[in-house]
């Protein structure tokens, strides 16, 4: 690591202020890794652990507020999360390891950077790390890379599992910064690479994520989180799918599908989801939806498999969410 100053503010305003010239640290499980690799070189670390942002509580509108500093473990095993938002619990527990989840925080999970090995290897070109240096992933190692929403400059993916579930649940993010507090819809939080892959979120300098807000409906009866990876645990997704559904009898009233491992953000296609409205619950419906969602997919030599794999995973997740195989 390079030298940096350590700052431990005790209130949000001070933190935010300090954050304009430094990096925030919460659990540190991703940031410290990147600092060791010399990918991140902050001159100052601003420790967010003493701001009282670690609680989980019910909100007035019947939803749930997840403190940004609550750990992934606390969140995943929280009784209300387990009971009312089981997809979130499932997704969190599908990521990382118990040790990492014990340290990693909800806010940090959102801000994870890609796991593209070229991004981590400072001796390789990478447009996200060094804009303009190139993207070897396109012709090289691209199993973990995007098939949707990528650009010529970057095909990296967002590695989170938790975020995929949050996207399906239509969560909102509350942030606090030098210009006060604001809310960001989950869909607008992560950015696609375009020609500026180094900019990954819509956070402004100095803005701190304070909470994640879950709406009242957690789809506890009809959900699935299905993750395809190369080993049974402790591996990033090739493709992951968070699916939730609302059913009336055998009729699908609403279906939402968010994909992980395929884009720089958890991917949803609202237009395609209209194909899940008022449709019979069957493999054909799910397949049509998957085809529509994947229509714009663009692949690279190392990840052509991801389109049909994503298709299969979507069908599987929707089948599980709608209990199709038990029908």
């Amino acid at each position: 690591m390079r030298p940096f100053k350590y700052n431990r503010p005790l209130d949000l305003a001070t933190a935010s202020n300090a954050g304009t010239s430094g990096s925030f640290i919460a659990g540190g499980t991703n940031l410290l890794d990147l600092m060791k690799c010399d990918v991140e070189q902050p001159s100052q670390l601003v420790d967010l652990n003493h701001l009282g942002l670690g609680s989980i509580s019910e909100t007035a509108d019947g939803g749930l507020e997840l403190g940004a500093l609550a750990t992934n473990t606390t969140t995943a095993y929280h009784p209300i999360v387990q009971e009312r938002y089981p997809i979130l619990s499932r997704a969190i527990l599908a990521g990382a390891s118990p040790q990492l989840r014990n340290k990693a925080t909800n806010g940090g999970n959102l801000l994870q950077r890609t796991r593209c090995p070229y991004f981590f290897d400072t001796d390789s070109p990478c447009n996200k790390r060094v804009p303009g240096s190139g993207c070897p992933a396109k012709e090289g190692y691209s199993k973990l890379h995007a098939i949707l929403g990528a650009s010529d400059s970057c095909i990296a993916t967002h590695p989170s599992d938790m975020c995929v579930a949050l996207r399906a649940l239509d969560a909102t993010i509350r942030v606090s910064g030098p210009h006060g507090e604001r809310r960001i819809e989950f869909a607008d939080f992560h950015r696609l690479p375009g020609d500026q892959p180094e900019i990954e979120t819509s956070l402004e300098k100095g803005e701190v994520i304070t909470a994640i807000l879950l709406p009242a409906d957690g789809f506890a009866d009809n959900f699935a989180y299905f993750k395809v990876r190369e080993r049974a645990s402790y591996a990033f997704a090739l493709v992951s799918v968070a699916a939730v559904a609302r059913l009336e009898g055998n009729q699908l009233k609403e279906g939402r599908v968010a994909l992980g491992g395929v884009a720089a953000k958890p991917w949803r296609d609202l237009e395609a989801e209209s194909l899940l409205c008022d449709q019979p619950c069957n493999a054909e419906t799910f397949g049509n939806f998957a085809d529509a969602l994947l229509q714009s997919a663009k692949t690279y030599p190392g990840n052509r498999f991801k389109v049909p794999m994503a298709r299969a995973a979507i069908v599987r997740a929707l089948s599980e969410a709608t209990h199709l195989n038990q029908l």
Binding site: Y6, G28, L32, N49, L100, K103
Partner: peptide, 12 residues
């Protein structure tokens, strides 16, 4: 609680 000590700064 079990954690990875390699990803924890001592000053924290």
């Amino acid at each position: 609680q079990r954690i990875n000590s390699c990803l924890s700064l001592a000053v924290m």
